[in-house]
Design a protein around this nucleic acid. Structure first.
Lengths: 329, 329
DNA sequence: GCATCTGCTTTAATCGATTAACAGAAACTT
DNA sequence: AAGTTTCTGTTAATCGATTAAAGCAGATGC
């Protein structure tokens, strides 16, 4: 509990060693430029005095920080976990740090974080947008901060993205249901931008097979909302569907529980397929069939894009079907 | 896609309006000190030119940023979700931002983030430590950055903490099992610091009731590890236990699945109780009995502590038992 | 009429680190 | 031996914003 309200600066180190601040700075950042002896003394002094540097001062001079911002619309969705972990690892490789921010599906908050991070002069911004890609993001890019959108969501089109191929994913999911002989599918998730392409892909396949894909809108993409939606549906209407394609696994889990509570057998009466392959998909009451992307590869790619000076190339990753008991008994 | 590599500074605004930079700064930060007309013009110019400020410059001068760092050891654990959401809301109230960082249970990474955030001069640091509270954290506190430990974990003792009352939680959990007539409990989670007090509380109650609480160590606190542990246990040994207290809900879910796969009935043959009451506890194959704390209150308290200039008061929150079917059929 | 006060604005120092430009000494060329 | 490199170190400008102190009108007081 020592009293040391004053922060240790580079000047303290310089005084302690008996050289100029410039030399200390060189010793820290370009050790080869100064004599070995001085480097040693500087390092000793740093350890002794507890010097930690002042990132603000450094940034002001250099113009960028070693941080990369990752703004997500819903940090509680486990689908981000694998992505974020890979991003973290990739960032650590080059000595960078990931700053995760949660916009909680609030566009206002998203904007606030975007502005905050731009003024912080982070080295790059990865945004999983609440809705469409906001204009602000492409403006930030124009002003010099590398940005990437996580997911291909429409909106500001000049922003590069890293995304799973959602359209193809929707195709794969619906083909699976059709192959299983299902004829009356329901899409749960409604017109939310995050699900747009998944829905379109599925719809296209359904139409090609002469089926109609009904769509049920949700107020929010949460387990609870999906549960409520299915629970509130008249049984007769519910049983007019023989399969459900949920916009993501959280919704699918909500659907599974609602069906379970109402005594509807899965997959016999209704088959259920989700999207993302989160950890809990496999652990659901009925193990969940789902579609996955290589989240680790996407995480790495997003960071690499957000680091490169002029990032303009978008990348798309193919879907992979993961069959479990919720569609095949 | 306009070409504007140059960032807009306060000087650009000043020139545009025809005043000094000082006036612009006052107009932004203390509008009452400047004439209304100028404030108006400044705001117009800001909007027109797209001024976003330079947080580094501001920080260098002011000494602190409006960001609060939240470093967690495992961002994929849903137990953090409610906590983080409340923290976010509380921070937003005072115009602050939460920067979430994930140490991924790596002490090296934890240290790197601590140093990074200190050099960033964030307004406060909330740390959910990998193991015990590191010395570095209390040194950071001594150097002037407010810090809080999330969880009471031993280690650097001078650091204030916000924590559930884990000892009491362990007591509540074990009392529940004993009331149900269980005689041979197993603790899953081993000697990990995060579970220390939960285990101690449970052990104490078991001893008082004349029972022995066996403990099974895990290499990591993950669903998979718990699953493996139970799956690898000889059936005879496994069935010598009539109940399992898992260090947290993730472990409990792993246990539930392993038991399910081996055909052990829950709760008839083995009752299972977890800790944290994560969203998926209720949604597990057998809805999970668990112990919860008021995570939202803890999130708010942590932020308030991390904001106050001299935070030294620790706060503990009482546990609450949530009974579901994994202990009572 | 002269001093004082008020309101608005500017001047200039400052935060802590980086780095171009420079300088002195030692080492190397030819 | 004179010129050229190389090696170390210093000086001083700079990044962009904040803010104490000072300046300067115009209003008010007596």
């Amino acid at each position: 509990m020592a009293e040391r309200p004053q922060r240790v600066t580079i000047a303290d180190i310089a005084k302690h060693v008996g050289v100029s601040t410039a030399t200390v700075s060189y010793a820290i950042n370009q050790p080869s430029r100064v004599s070995a002896g001085v480097v040693l003394q500087v390092n000793e002094a740093i350890a002794l005095l507890g010097y930690r540097g002042n990132a603000a001062a450094r940034q002001l001079r250099v113009g960028r920080s070693e941080a990369i911002a990752l703004i997500v619309n819903d940090a509680s969705n486990p689908a981000f976990t694998a992505f974020a972990a890979a991003a973290e690892t990739e960032a650590a490789l080059t000595g960078r740090f990931i700053l995760l921010a949660n916009s909680s599906d609030d566009p206002t908050r998203e904007l606030a974080y975007l502005r905050f991070f731009e003024s912080q002069q982070v080295g790059g911004i990865v945004l999983a947008p609440v809705g469409e890609v906001p204009e602000e993001l492409s403006e930030i890019a124009n002003r010099g901060t590398p940005v990437v959108s996580l997911g291909n969501l429409g909106g500001a089109s000049s922003v590069p993205f890293v995304s799973g191929d959602d359209h193809a994913g929707g195709v794969v999911a619906m083909k699976h249901l059709i192959h299983l002989g299902r004829r009356t599918p329901l899409f749960v998730g409604g017109p939310l931008p995050q699900f747009r392409y998944r829905h379109q892909g599925a719809e296209q396949v359904a139409a090609a097979a002469g089926r109609v894909l009904e769509s049920h809108a949700l107020a929010a993409a949460t387990v609870k909302e999906a549960f409520r939606a299915i629970s509130a549906m008249p049984l007769e209407q519910l049983l007019s569907f023989d399969s459900v394609f949920a916009g993501n696994d959280l919704l699918a889990i909500g659907v599974l529980h609602a069906l379970h509570d109402r005594g509807v057998r899965v997959p016999e009466q209704i088959a259920v397929i989700g999207y993302d392959d989160i950890e809990f998909a496999e652990l659901a009451i009925v193990p969940l069939t789902t579609v996955r992307h290589d989240a680790a590869a996407m995480g790495r790619a997003a960071i690499r894009t957000a680091i490169g000076p002029k990032a303009t190339t978008s990348q798309t990753y193919p879907p992979q079907l993961v069959v479990r008991r919720s569609t095949v008994s």
